[in-house]
């Protein structure tokens, strides 16, 4: 009898392991949130490595295959992945993870976005996001907010573990909050700029005064006149640094630095699943950004 009970316990453990939810995320940042909340009940993989620009990614067939096998798909939302994720969801033929399905999870749904455009929205404004700036994964507070969506979707898939997910979520929020306090203590309140509005949430989160972006219109390289104008503004306002990602045009950045004398730093804006990267987690990425502020 004892052996039978032992066998049942072992088998039930094996079953629990086999029934891990397969979660596919668009970005490593999202994967980290899901892992933190889902713990041992999820098997998470990210489609992108974090070194790509998620605005411009493509519906690769290997992504389609991963989404086909997923129980849950989690995305940033706010139209960040609009160019490629809908195509992947369509081609994967997996009803439960498509929009409206129980396994479709959009973290941006639980975030109060910045930069929501008003008035008439069209492409004369550049590549605008009508629902607001989607780069909220650089704000620890917004990441904490977004986790509520992960709890909702995981709990729907495994209702019996809902309390575990809620507990993990609370612990995750505390970790983020503690890290935020430590990092904020290291920062001076300086004036900053960014090339594209990818670091807005980071600046906003730490109370850094941003003079805006070098791009006049999102997704459109700035004109020579715009570079000169912003360089002049940066000098007058004693801006100390401009943040840009590696995909920002080098010549534009060089020209800005030359005209303004302001330091330009190229930084990751997403967690990266790369061996050589030092931004392998949300907190590591925050550390890198904080250290880049003079």
């Amino acid at each position: 009898m004892k052996h039978l009970i032992l066998s049942l316990i072992i088998l039930s453990g094996a079953y629990a392991h086999a029934t891990k939810l397969k979660v596919v995320t668009t970005l490593p940042d999202v994967a980290e949130v899901v892992q933190a909340i889902g713990g041992e009940f999820v098997d998470v993989q990210s489609l992108l490595k974090g070194s790509e620009d998620p605005h411009y990614s493509e519906a690769r067939p290997d992504f389609i295959l991963k989404v086909n096998r997923a129980d849950i798909v989690c995305a940033v939302g706010l139209d960040l992945e609009i160019g490629w994720l809908p195509k992947i969801l369509e081609k994967a033929g997996n009803a439960k993870v498509q929009s409206g399905g129980p396994g479709f999870c959009v973290l941006g749904a639980k975030v109060t976005a910045l930069d929501i455009p008003g008035g008439v929205i069209n492409r004369s404004l550049g590549d605008v996001h009508p629902h607001g700036n989607p780069h909220f994964m650089l704000s620890l507070e917004k990441i904490a907010d977004s986790g509520a969506e992960v709890v909702r979707v995981l709990s729907l898939a495994l209702p019996e573990k809902a309390s575990v997910f809620e507990k993990n979520y609370e612990a995750f929020k505390r970790r983020l909050s503690d890290s935020k306090k430590e990092l904020a203590a290291q920062l001076k309140k300086v004036k900053v700029l960014e090339y594209h509005k990818e670091f807005t949430y980071f600046f906003n989160s730490y109370g850094l005064e941003s003079l805006g972006s070098l791009e006049e219109k999102p997704g459109m390289p700035p004109s020579a006149a715009r570079i000169a104008k912003v360089a002049q503004l940066a000098k007058e306002n004693k801006v100390v640094v401009l943040f840009a990602t590696v995909s920002a045009p080098h010549k534009v950045l060089e020209r800005f630095q030359e005209l303004s004398g302001v330091r330009v730093v190229q930084l990751p804006s997403y967690v990266q699943n790369l061996d050589k990267s030092s931004a392998k987690s949300i907190i590591e990425l925050q550390n890198i950004l904080v250290k880049a502020i003079p």
């Binding site: 086909n68 969801l89 369509e90 081609k91 994967a92 033929g93 997996n94 009803a95 498509q98 399905g101």
Partner: peptide, 9 residues
């Protein structure tokens, strides 16, 4: 439809 038949459209 890509929702009616699993893995198919």
């Amino acid at each position: 439809s890509s929702k009616l038949i699993p893995s198919s459209r």
